[in-house]
Amino acid sequence: MDSILIAMILALLIPIYEAWQDDDIWQTILAFTSIATKTSIMMLVISVSRDDWSIGVVAVIILSVGNAGLMLMAHLIKRINEA
């Protein structure tokens, strides 16, 4: 289970690096969506390995609510670019 978590952290480093090095706003948003999904899946894995379901509930809430905020932000940025 630990090696799985380490592999996941390594995969998480890729979008973090991309968000840091690319200046284009859409590439950055893409990296952030990837970070959001990956961290919440990691939370679920941790909650299974520790057998603590309060962490899991938080992860599911983040999965279902967190992406909505990113969608709103994408629309906002589009409007601002058009104006």
């Binding site: 999965l63 279902s64 992406n67």
Partner: peptide, 19 residues
């Protein structure tokens, strides 16, 4: 978690592609 993941990620993909 599986259902919300499938729906939200797909919809988010569409919204980002559109924008």
């Amino acid at each position: 978690a599986i259902i919300t993941l499938a729906i939200w990620n797909t919809v988010l993909g569409y919204v980002i592609a559109y924008c």
